[in-house]
Nucleic acid binder design. Sequence first.
DNA 1: CCTTGTTTTTTCCAGTTGGTCAAATTGTTG
DNA 2: CAACAATTTGACCAACTGGAAAAAACAAGG
Lengths: 211, 211
Amino acid sequence: MTKTVPKSDTRIQKKNQALIMSAGLVVFSQFGFRGSTLDLVAQEAGLSKPNLLYYFRSKDAIYTALLAKTLTNWLEPLRKIDAKGDPVEELLGYAKRKLDMSQHYPRESRLFANEIIQGAPRIGDVLRGELRELVDETAVVINGWATAGRINKVDPYHLIFSIWAQTQHYADFDVQVRSVLGNIDPFDGAQYHLEAMLRGLLTPLVDQKGC
Amino acid sequence: MTKTVPKSDTRIQKKNQALIMSAGLVVFSQFGFRGSTLDLVAQEAGLSKPNLLYYFRSKDAIYTALLAKTLTNWLEPLRKIDAKGDPVEELLGYAKRKLDMSQHYPRESRLFANEIIQGAPRIGDVLRGELRELVDETAVVINGWATAGRINKVDPYHLIFSIWAQTQHYADFDVQVRSVLGNIDPFDGAQYHLEAMLRGLLTPLVDQKGC
DNA sequence: CCTTGTTTTTTCCAGTTGGTCAAATTGTTG
DNA sequence: CAACAATTTGACCAACTGGAAAAAACAAGG
């Protein structure tokens, strides 16, 4: 008989699996996969280590499940960009959604940051597959807007990178940002700044001053 | 007799210390402090583990020395911003220097990224002290430029954050960027994009169209 | 109360980890 | 080449790591 992991989904299983995922998020997002231990996750979850392994086959299984679960939500904002909407408002909306995620789900951001910094050993395929396709599609949309003269000509890939970079920075480097800002809340100013930056980049000059 | 670490600096010591630092950079920048092992560092350096500990008191000592050594170089570009120079060119130059560092010293960038994501347990003091002061001073300079009408009014702190974010993104998330871009070199486009973005943000409108 | 299935804990293990120490080796200098 | 210091290695250790096994505790229906 091979190692058994619960098949049926009772409410207590759902609860404990969620508990473990939540604890795993806390630990893995701070220390990365290699820097995390099952003992830490168990302690955070308030369960015993063997009990973790009753619900998940291995440390790897917890981490992988966590990544997979979070990944979908993480890419969703990009899918919401509507080719038929107003270009500047669509891109600003995207940036705002990403910034909101950094504010409300910083751990998820750090989880990915850790994974990618370490070379993305488990999600390399997703990066080169699903993510790349999604970005390619969005790039086509952005290029269409530029060709139509509705925004300035920009490199759509680097535009997307710059939105990722600036929004995720406030989650991943939270400690640094707050060290510099002191008591000031980062996210108010961040949103305003990001908007100004994107408008300055995207808005055709003729619209800015009407000449 | 307490644990002895070499005091005099023979050439062989200099060589091996540099070797260890270099190996430590490779390992710690990928896995963070907790995810790294002395065995990995030793293997990377081509030395035995006890031999590492002949030159450094502990794993912690290697890591701390590495952080300290790199920190100075890391902050230097910010110090080079000259209040008497042309505002836009100064800021553009700063961004370019940071981007160059991401290109040529990506491991150093990732080393800090790991440290800060994990809560900056060892450089929190530096962040709240030296770094903060330095940013504060730079903010004064930028505010001065804005007040004089030489650049648009911007939040200097978030401006600096956005430069950090965008430049370091290309080092820290290198794998992701390359996954999306395929064979295209990220840094050419990055520099162009960053410059456009900063000019759009900083350049007073009256200068852009002369009206 | 008994049976059956689920959940939890106790105990254990082999491999890894950071680190010590004494012995062996290799410079270096007179 | 001695003699002494600097360097390197091999053997070792206690604590920690991911994980297995099995027994114990618990739940629910008959």
